[in-house]
Design a binder for these strands. Structure first.
Lengths: 335, 335
DNA sequence: ATGAAAGCGCTAACAA
DNA sequence: TTGTTAGCGCTTTCAT
């Protein structure tokens, strides 16, 4: 008969004794996995509060084979998309918490960390951000015994779940929107060459959607990629205007270059060119011109990823690949 | 005698049997807590690899009262400082991993999360970001039985460890630097009113350092605060130039307003005003003008926070408050 | 509706 | 240098 030292944390045994019941009754009362009389439950509840009882996570994990922790593999390098990364993370953490799960944060830079925590039974499942088309981590991820959901869309996801914005639809709908507004010649300022080279599927998917839809306009698709800088954006605009002076609409998928694109149009006296930009909210909100805007719903995608992990934990696989439909919004510079 | 199902993860018993030794020998061989003969160690090592053995984290935590996990409480709201937040996080995670610790990510928005994970023995210690002068979480943090280190500097840290940039020194040295470069009238564009109101100590500390040092110049200190926008920066410059036409140096502690400050000086034809900015690297690097620059060494501070937690775990409290000395760097617009 | 007791997989005395 | 074993605190089966 052990009584815990004060401040050391009461155990379930302490609670049981205080409430005058057995440990299993306490366990069941707390988990709700079997009916407990109101009177008993009340006594247990009182004892729990009086002792400040908190179940020991390790003991629980050992006995139940459940940790109630999710791994999140995130790119913590500081690149262009910091705010998007943070929104993904926030979405994942918030949603996880609403399901009573905690989040263990791993980084992309630490290559075998997911394998380590998964096979060490530290987590029940995982969300992996920033997955590329032929991501080298894929074989290792596939070998993890817990459910894994990817943010991104590799060529061969196998049994892994995937979520992402439907970039192909975004490309199509961006062009369609401009065409519906009477634009006859819509160009694309795409992702930086470095991103394309990394085979990050989203850049190619957007390009594909754009190309399909722009094929029907006079002169066909007209795209270029730009480095993620002001100068890159200005150069891209200059190039496109040179190649097609009749340019009257522009789809921009490059946050870093966006300011330069706007500036380039201004300097060329072509503020009449209508814009659709695919970009995180904060970047668009800083724009000094009106435009149509397709948000990257990072928080939402993070939430869906968590939901998918949970479905898989419950044994309901659900759809393997979930693409979030793009939504077009309007940005007013004045607002 | 239990043999684990394949794919289910081998146990220490499996390893012991395969190596022909006892479980304790395996445990000691793996922890290095007692000498093991080379031959035995080799057999154990082979068995470990052959079976793909990974210790069960929960079991280990239960038996050893150690989780090898640190909690990190971070503000996941998307505010101005996203890149700084991410650098703190990256610093903490990287340093933690280099000490063989993992990181459980909690958010500021979930108020009792640290209490929950700490009293549930999920973590061995914690780092808490974004702590304000009279942070309401302080009492709860102080009640946590594991070591806690704050990033920030509350008025009464009590037994908690603290790390931060020495903003007071940054304010002083910014002015000194400009004075040494021959500037006679140095103004300050400070943090947004909202930040000042939140009693985030860093804003006030920088202001104090600035004020002390600028007291010795003709006309004394000359400061204003600006909202974190381009417009805010332009307004602040206009105000300062109006109040002191002889302004020839400016200390800027407001990333969001920085672009507007530069633009405001340009429009006023006062590109001659020398700048010292306190800001994260990425913001400065986007600046179209030369300046002197005091970096917020976020990653470094995160690392120090982890080190302090580890020292406390080892029973060496070390200094309670650690302030990182500011370093002045030079930014060239061309580079 | 409740209890007794057998593990879960590991660590760390205690023994040899 | 190695082995035996008693927990760590919880969940869950089997009894009642």
């Amino acid at each position: 008969m052990r009584t815990s030292a004060p401040g050391e944390g009461a155990t379930i045994g302490d609670v049981a004794r205080a409430a005058g019941v057995s440990v299993s009754t306490v366990s069941y009362a707390l988990s709700g996995k079997r009916p407990i009389s109101a009177a008993t439950r009340a006594r247990i509840q009182a004892a729990v509060e009086q002792l400040g009882y908190r179940p020991h996570a390790g003991a629980r994990a050992l006995a139940s084979r459940r940790t109630d922790v999710l791994a999140l593999v995130a790119p913590l390098r500081v690149d262009v998309n910091v705010s998007v990364i943070l929104q993904f993370v926030a979405g994942v953490v918030t949603r996880a918490r609403s399901h009573d799960l905690d989040v263990l944060l791993l980084t992309n830079e630490d290559p075998h960390s997911l394998d380590r925590v998964a096979s060490g039974s530290m987590v029940d499942g995982a969300v992996v951000m920033d997955v590329e088309r032929d991501d080298p981590r894929l074989p290792e991820l596939a070998a993890v015994r817990q459910p894994v959901v990817l943010i991104g869309l590799p060529d061969e996801p196998g049994r892994l779940g995937c979520v992402d914005l439907d970039f192909e639809a975004a490309g199509r709908e961006g062009v369609r929107h401009l065409a519906a507004a009477g634009r006859r010649r819509v160009g694309l300022v795409g992702s930086p060459p470095a991103v394309m080279a990394r085979r990050t599927s989203f850049a190619e998917r957007l390009l594909r959607g754009y190309t399909q839809e722009a094929a029907s306009q006079d002169g066909g698709p007209l795209s270029t990629s730009a480095t993620s800088t002001r100068a890159g954006g200005m150069a891209a605009v200059a190039e496109l205007l040179h190649r097609a002076p009749d340019l009257d609409g522009l789809l921009v998928h490059n946050e870093g270059a966006l300011g330069g694109v706007v500036e380039g149009l201004r300097q060329a006296g072509r503020e009449d060119v209508a814009l659709v930009v695919v970009s995180p909210a904060d970047v668009v909100q800083a724009l000094p011109v009106d435009c149509t805007w397709i948000e990257i719903p990072a928080a939402r995608i993070g939430e869906i990823a968590v939901d998918m992990v949970i479905e898989r934990l419950a044994g309901q696989p659900g759809p393997e690949v979930r693409l979030v439909a793009p939504e077009l919004r309007t940005h007013r510079a004045g607002a």
